[in-house]
Amino acid sequence: MANLNVNIGNLSLKNPVLTASGTFGYGEEFADFIDLNRLGGFIVKGTTLEPRQGNDYPRMVETPSGMLNAVGLQNKGVEYFISEIYPRLLQYDSEIIVNISGSSIDDYRKVAEMLAPLDRIRAIEVNISCPNVKSGGMAFGTTTEGAASVTKAVREAFPKTLIVKLSPNVTSIADIARAVEAEGADSVSLINTLMGMAIDVERQRPYLSTITGGLSGAAVRPVAVRMVWQVSKAVKIPVIGLGGIMNGRDAIEFMLAGARAIEVGTANFINPAVTVEIVDYMNDYCERHGVKDINEIVGMI
């Protein structure tokens, strides 16, 4: 069997397969379908300093080969995560990565500070790109200055592996990636959802309570592959690729484009066992192509 182990900064993953934040709950929701220990790791729900109720229903509408969502970071806050959820996750030996969000730089810093002492949280993913929060999120992720200032603050508060998750809703994602690399990020992950909109023409109103929302699923994949390719050429830190990965083939596509690891999001809704199927596919692929170490194929293109 080929080596599937990959490293993201100081974080060692038993394989490149991670789950995308907001699509995999806290992992537990999928424990009936798969052995969570077979994943490289799981990235839990977006976590904020204070509890958040998120946006009003309706929050979701299916679109061609994808979906729009407007969940808006509903979560019970970082304290609840630390006291109630984290202890339950310790039974798994896959890496637990916490995705964090905030409305101010101080929020980000505080959440990162609170997570830093937790032994088993060896990495955080900083979401500077959620398009659903009225103030904050979007602004940080769409300018090089905003992205850099969040990265700088979190870097000071969190000594372990720092992944910054980038928004695709920008003119040059490579510029943003360079800016966060310069502030000490260990890795960048991309893409978050693409801003979109859909209208119910019979009722003559938008499907989502927020009018616009984030597009995910197979529909975004070519855009995501292109961006991963561009960013991996622009920075030296490892890139984590995601956006519309539906199966093992798609995961390999991202790795060829330059991703060291990948995240699976919307596909979990359609096939709750897809993540472990991707791990199996990677083994298979390596065997078929005479690859001894999956790192060999990263960025071949």
Partner: peptide, 27 residues
Amino acid sequence: ENVMACGVGACLCCVEKTTAGNVCVCK
């Protein structure tokens, strides 16, 4: 019958406002 994506309580798309805040209808 709220509109659902995952059906297992992972995506938080199907919420209903309750006395305990927004909860997932699917779960």
